[in-house]
Design a protein around this nucleic acid. Structure first.
Lengths: 248, 248
DNA sequence: CGTAGTCTTGATCCACATCAATTCGTGTGG
DNA sequence: CCACACGAATTGATGTGGATCAAGACTACG
């Protein structure tokens, strides 16, 4: 397995899997060339910390592949996940020097980094970047607010069902995009990470997953592979029947 | 008391109390003039609903004065506040036709509205607006994430202390800006609204406020007026000693 | 005064946390 | 190939913080 920075990756933006969804999505050819000059890649192994809250962070970045998490902690160790970073998601805040959250690689990840200073300067001149970043930030804000409803008002069972819905929904296109029924996916998170996501303990997560299995809402093969025979049923269990947790 | 739209307010942007903090903060004179042409004011009384989630919303707006809330609800009536709108905060999302949340006036409020279409068109041409909106959205996202930590991991007492800290902090400049000790303010929210903010029941809110009073952390005069003899003590009670809940 | 809304306080209950073993799965070294 | 070790997950027993149910108390207002 690759160690951090041992195999400097090279990738041209034209071939980039997130070219059309990341912060650069709206950029035209000239702008992409300019970005190409200031970008570099870093990879992290599953479990590694990308940055600690409070540390100086001299870059911003897009997640190219893999999954990372944003977490906050209280002094006594209680921790809450506040963001789940999927490919194309953006890390770091232009105009702020320190990291506000812990960023941790959940799987092996590849990040496309931009040194902060040149990126900020370019953002000033390049409305396409600011516009896209605004869109993405508004989407994240909506997701955060949906998540607040989950944290504040849902039961443990509803929380688990909501999380499964979100992951299922995200992986759905990878399967047979059409049918709502019989979706299958791998959980990218440990029970503990799920607990931190949902504001529960890992024991409660485990119990509720067992309960959903017992009730036939989900089928497990191993600890991590899940199939959902009836997606509508799962959405019902999640509490917010309409759309399963994410705004369109 | 004024009814909705009965007394159309007129205010020039030059005299506007939120001129330097709202979405128009970065606009130069020309841009402000252009905004002045497409803006109009609406006022709402305490308790009135500004929009319902799902309704078509043909404007975006800034809160000029007063306080409003953003809430989400599950079908069975459980509700969670997901945003607290103070003067200068922005309502509505460019590029989306329906409202995502219920917006309710908590006090009498005055809003500076822009018809969505012209505003969106202007935003395309006017980086100053998009840039400012991006800043504001990033701030809101940080606040939402701090709030997620509160909802997911804090105890009822810590939640109440956190809320009081936030309100105290916001009102602090209005008092004698210097000292950390002896802060005084009015709660702008009912017990029920606080409960919806914090993911608690109103009974628990009431009990915890009584407990903080009993323990000398706060002093109440009437139901709504609070003074805090020792702000540091309150911050300790909030759990995150450093800054009381809001990033700088 | 009476009525309605807001708030407080008490008694009880229960969902989830906590504490404590097992079990499962995977990799490692003899 | 087995023994064992270690982390991840399950499952059980018990405790508790906050919800729920239910009276009252305070305030404002007609």
């Amino acid at each position: 397995m690759a160690h951090d920075d041992v195999h400097p990756v090279s990738l041209t933006c034209g071939d980039c899997p997130i070219r059309h969804r990341a912060v650069c999505a709206r950029c035209d050819v000239d702008e992409i060339e300019e970005l190409e000059d200031i970008k570099y890649y870093r990879s992290f192994e599953a479990g590694q910390t990308v940055v600690w809250a409070g540390d100086k962070m001299d870059f911003v970045a897009s997640v190219v592949s893999g999954i990372a998490t944003l977490t906050q902690t209280l002094e006594d160790g209680r921790t809450q996940m506040v963001g789940l970073l999927l490919p194309s998601d953006f890390v770091g805040r232009p105009g702020r020097s320190g990291a506000a959250y812990n960023v941790t690689a959940t799987t092996n990840i590849l990040m496309c980094c931009f040194r902060k200073k040149p990126f900020e300067e370019m953002m000033e001149r390049t409305p396409h970047i600011a516009q896209r970043l605004l869109q993405m930030t508004l989407d994240e804000l909506d997701a955060a607010r949906e998540w607040m409803l989950l944290l504040g008002r849902k039961t443990a069972r509803e929380k688990i069902a909501s999380l499964l819905s979100i992951v299922a929904r995200r992986d759905a296109p990878l399967n047979h995009a059409a049918q709502t029924s019989e979706v299958t996916f791998d959980l990218p998170l440990t029970r503990e990470a799920m607990a931190d996501y949902l504001g529960l303990t890992l024991e409660t997560v485990s119990r509720q997953i067992s309960a959903l299995k017992r009730d036939g809402v989900i089928v497990l093969e191993g600890k991590r592979h899940v199939s959902v025979p009836d997606m509508d049923r799962l959405l019902m269990e999640a509490g917010d029947d309409s759309d399963g947790g994410l705004l369109i």
